[in-house]
Write a protein that binds this DNA or RNA. Structure first.
Ligand SMILES: [Zn+2]
Ligand SMILES: [Zn+2]
Ligand SMILES: [Zn+2]
Ligand SMILES: [Zn+2]
Lengths: 136, 136
DNA sequence: GTCGTTCTGCGAATGATTATCACTAGGCGT
DNA sequence: ACGCCTAGTGATAATCATTCGCAGAACGAC
């Protein structure tokens, strides 16, 4: 039913994605072109969206409204879910563990009678490097 | 330096905001026009943005990327900060309390050396009413 | 009332994302 | 290796929420 073909473009995207870091769709596009691949912007968007749905990349939305994507181990296992602490200045992100949060969420949900809960936690601040650089 | 004038438009916006609920900027705009006020869309955007910055309204971004605004007591006191559990179907939102979360955030932040942390928690699910309505 | 600012309205501009649609190319059966 | 069917691609147009730019309107202190 759902045939997914491995194309040159998709491979290139996956390959680029492999060296970590958050980048916008357009950012990845530039990256790919810089590497010599001729990939269309629309294709990059489609690829990222597909990967995001299958859990292979996770996304985060910046204050300015653009979506950032980053490769993130296959979502086969529970560990695919986690949260980030991201630097407002340079974008560097750290995976964090929020002990007990998943449980709290489940409790709050049932307390209010809500079903099919999904959640988002976004922590952003200024990383040590940027904080140091800011001291001028 | 920063004088803020109370205009007919701003008053109308504040007044409309008063009857709670999340609405998009365009949503509030329609609301205002429905009430007879002739307010420009841009003005509504500007007003909401200002109120949001001063903490009088809080915002939430939907999956489709549009920003929703809702009146929320003046941010003079600590209680201005809280989180929501929102229904994906009807938009109804409940204020929730996530015990100890603020503390956990602070700890995580310092653990990673990040400064000026700000956070967002978004819980969304299907409220009891919508869940019931879905059973057809 | 007068005046310096701030605010408003309008439409045009932006900018990220999506839709279109003719064309290309996986990849399975042979 | 050959061909067909269909998913994938790419250039561009379209969407859509939000922002800008600027001329004129309206605060509000004097
Ligand atoms: Zn940084
Ligand atoms: Zn979680
Ligand atoms: Zn509901
Ligand atoms: Zn909080």
């Amino acid at each position: 039913m759902t045939a997914t073909r491995m194309t040159r473009q998709r491979a290139a995207l996956l390959d680029a994605l492999r060296d970590g870091g958050f980048r916008s769709a357009q950012g990845w596009h530039e990256r790919l072109r810089a590497d010599g691949s001729t990939v269309g912007l629309a294709t990059v968007y489609r690829g990222l969206q597909a990967l995001s749905e299958s859990g292979e990349v996770d996304t985060v939305v910046t204050d300015s409204g653009e979506t950032l994507y980053r490769h993130c181990g296959p979502g086969e296992d529970e560990h695919g879910h986690h949260h980030h602490l991201r630097c407002r200045e340079c974008g560097r992100a750290v995976d964090i563990d929020v002990p007990g949060f998943e449980t709290i969420v489940a409790e709050l949900a049932s307390h209010h009678g809500y079903r099919d809960i999904s959640h988002t936690i976004e922590l952003s601040g200024v990383c040590p490097e940027c904080a140091a650089a800011a001291r001028d």
